[in-house]
Design a binder for these strands. Structure first.
Lengths: 208, 208
DNA sequence: CACAGTAAATACATTGGGTGTAATATTGCA
DNA sequence: TGCAATATTACACCCAATGTATTTACTGTG
């Protein structure tokens, strides 16, 4: 994997990783707002300007890895069943993503989640990421039902699903004890989210 | 209302309003990112530092007015019907708010909505506002069903409702022509949102 | 090995949002 | 009028972020 990269690329990747590591370590110990980019670059032993060679913004260093789950989600959406409704397809895609991921919330993921939940400045970035992903899902869903689904309904459906999850997750995480339990046992997290989706959607359907 | 305020307070309010007006005018003509706070304060004829006496941040000048609709919403939630389910109560509250407001999206509201949708930096702030309101709604809903509703389900329900609306609204507004039509005829906007809620929730309920 | 091309890292300067603080102007009230 | 309260201002400062030019280090080629 890394073997066929030239020395130059390897060096670049190394400095990038050094920045990520230094940033996360400093954020965790001093807090996000209290850590300056100068601190990070000093710890990584590079020039301050170098930070912006690798990352577009301070928060970007925390959102380094690509959104793998989103790709999987849209991949499922690309193959709707013969008699599957949009809502059913969405739910199946969610189920696939939830059960495919081997490491839904690992050690570093948890640290990052804590940082985001504690830091308003980072919440904004996370929200932006979610909104982007939402738009992408809407596009994929519309592609799956090009003739029978109008954009507003599609967007509302996706919004409902994302809203359900965000609502459930934020509440689960607001209780530190529950959050720790979920982090320790990913299966419990999966179950909690599946339950939330199922019961919520059933309730919504019964409003006639 | 403003009569019993002293001269000092009136002057302060006038300065604040001058800043809001100048900011909105400049944002609309030059764009949000292209407008500096120095521009705004120059147009309002005050010192740059004065801006931060009235607003905590650049985006705050756009979120000036208090969320009146939220109060009405929670007021409805405070009086659940005898056999009303949480989802039904939420839907009734939404219906009440939608039909009570005489000016759901007036001229200046529209301008602000356009700015927010066009400017990523503002979207984050808007979503934060929405999430705050969401938490408040969850609290009110839990108060209405203290024994039969658990926090996670409540939060998921509210998230689903808000997500549905946000999804529908953003899509409605993304089409400039549709947005103009909605702005011109509030009744059409109301109908579109009611339809979005109804059809979306029905779809979700059929995922069994 | 030397050399030219290329890309990463750096130095330097600058803009703009946001804050702390102390001084100044204006208002409320005795 | 004179004093307390407060809105506004002036000034200095920090930090994130960007533009540009320069230096440093790697790559492939002859």
């Amino acid at each position: 994997m890394t073997g066929n990269m030239g020395l130059r690329e390897r060096k670049k990747a190394r400095t990038r990783q050094a920045l990520v590591d230094a940033a996360i370590a400093l954020f965790a110990s001093k807090g996000y707002d209290e850590t300056t980019i100068a601190d990070v670059t000093a710890a990584a032993d590079v020039s301050p300007r170098t930070f912006f060679v690798h990352f577009a913004s301070k928060e970007d260093v925390l959102f380094d890895d690509p959104p793998l789950k989103l790709e999987l989600f849209t991949a499922v959406l690309a193959q709707p069943g013969p008699d599957e409704t949009p809502a059913q397809l969405l739910r199946r895609a969610f189920h696939s993503v939830l059960n495919s991921d081997t490491d839904p919330l690992g050690q570093s993921e948890r640290l990052r989640a804590d940082l985001i939940l504690q830091t308003p400045a980072l919440q904004a970035g996370a929200v932006r990421k979610v909104l982007e992903g939402q738009r992408e899902i809407v596009r994929a869903l519309l592609d799956a039902y090009p003739d029978t689904l109008d954009p507003v309904t599609a967007s509302a459906l996706v919004g409902a699903m994302v809203g359900t999850l965000v609502g459930a997750i934020t509440m689960l995480y607001s209780d530190a004890e529950v959050a720790a339990r979920m982090a320790a046992d990913p299966q419990q997290m999966r179950a909690a989210l599946e339950t939330a989706i199922a019961s919520t959607w059933q309730h919504l359907g019964d409003t006639g």
